[in-house]
Design a protein around this nucleic acid. Structure first.
Lengths: 243, 243
DNA sequence: GCGGGGCGTTTTACCTCCGTAACGAAACCT
DNA sequence: AGGTTTCGTTACGGAGGTAAAACGCCCCGC
């Protein structure tokens, strides 16, 4: 245990050296607690900070001119958030805490120093951003080319697999911590229709629910319905620089 | 002119040193010409190569189990393609040439060496992948939350702005080089409905067409219809390491 | 303990945007 | 010229959106 949850996250993919762990730990020197619902970053406002999410959940979203919202991504402990902001002077997205959360803010310049002094970490960050890219293209295919039922199914599977990545104790159930309206805003549906799909899936014995907790009763079937592929197996990071 | 179109592309954002340009040029030592329609990479097949697209156009897409296709991205000269493959042993997407094209293939390990020896280029690659991330989230919002008309409008604007980035001579017209079916597969519509939208936009004097060439007659209006924001203005790359 | 108030879920009725299927015309190979 | 691809157009149907109300639940204040 290094004390840096970002390092812990990276070590899911690659063993870090002491020096690298220490450098990553320095990103998390500052901590900020935020309450559920707190706005961490507002779209179109200037930004200089990035964050490592130490605990809790966060979502990123945009609001279109007509008022509708698209949730872009849900983040969990260990995730590197606001990274899109590295390139823009104004934030392209809003960040809001979905639960009470602990953030470790750091400056763009701290990122620069990290990239300069730790080429292997730089390569790993590049690799991570490619994984996120693929996660986004999977969702793009989901929104563009599959039915409401399929979108909800693959969304649930994606969330549980990402939770599993950091928490081995999870088997087939998890706390979603999203309203049906939020699910809809994530997968491009109305809350009414999300509700229809969820109750249908419950009736079909694909999932069950009790006070916010979702249990996947037939994950195989859900994968088929959602055209889902778990991208966290089958990684190839051997090409990364040696320690 | 460095002889490396990838270097040219990167220099749109940052001035490179001689050494950096030379290193990038080495990625383009091998060239491969492909014909329109050629499959460069097939989804789910093993991959070790990445490419810099030197000339022509390429698209990436996935085919869902039901046979439908989602086009993920269209690439132009100077783009770095197949980068998602850096992380996976099997390709998550297919790559097909939309026109006769020239590719410069190189190995994952060449990328490693580049990242190790040129931290500033590594940082720039990280930055570029963040830009692509934002481009994808913009499309996600488009597919998830806007109408067919809006999707087509923003798609056209995105393409012309990316062409403009590399070719200053472009003002208000461009060759799309996509069939209406392909446009549909990119924005999540059927070719029938794409056709409806395009003819409607033509009737509304928003665009005009003559043999495959599209002219944007009222870009302001199109931006409003498509909820479009040009992300290529307003970049902040000052935090990147000094030369 | 009881009565709101607020939020999320569930349900209904209705409607519309976009998909489906099909076909003819035009354009494009070779 | 003849096939093949792409575009244009139609009629129809259905998946999902809209609007509205009722329902449950938790919190809070009195």
């Amino acid at each position: 245990m290094s004390g840096s949850c970002f390092a812990d996250r990276l070590e899911k993919h690659l063993n870090l050296t002491e020096r690298e762990r220490a450098a990553l730990g320095r990103l998390e020197e500052n901590q900020r607690k935020v309450k559920r619902g707190a706005v961490i970053q507002r779209a179109n406002e200037p930004i200089t900070e990035l964050y490592v999410l130490r605990a809790g959940r966060v979502m990123s979203y945009v609001i279109l001119p007509d008022g509708s919202r698209q949730i872009l991504r849900v983040y969990f402990a260990g995730d590197f958030i606001g990274s899109a902001s590295t390139v823009y002077s104004k934030s392209p997205e809003s960040l809001v805490a979905l639960s009470d959360a602990v953030l470790c803010p750091f400056d763009k310049h701290a990122l620069r120093i990290l990239l300069e002094e730790h080429p292997r970490v730089a390569a790993l960050l590049f690799a991570l951003s490619q994984m996120e890219r693929v996660a986004l293209t999977d969702r793009l295919a989901s929104l563009g080319r599959s039915s409401a039922r399929a979108r909800v199914a693959s969304f649930l599977l994606d969330i549980i697999d990402r939770l599993r990545l950091m928490d081995d104790s999870i088997t087939d159930s998890f706390d979603l911590k999203l309203t049906q309206e939020e699910i809809g805003d994530a997968v491009g549906l109305t809350s009414v229709h999300v509700n229809r799909m969820i109750r249908q899936m419950e009736a079909d014995a694909l999932i069950s629910r009790s006070n916010g907790r979702i249990t996947l009763l037939n994950e195989k079937a859900l994968e088929e319905i959602g055209h889902y592929t778990n991208r966290y197996t089958d990684l190839d990071l051997d090409w990364l620089p040696d320690a």
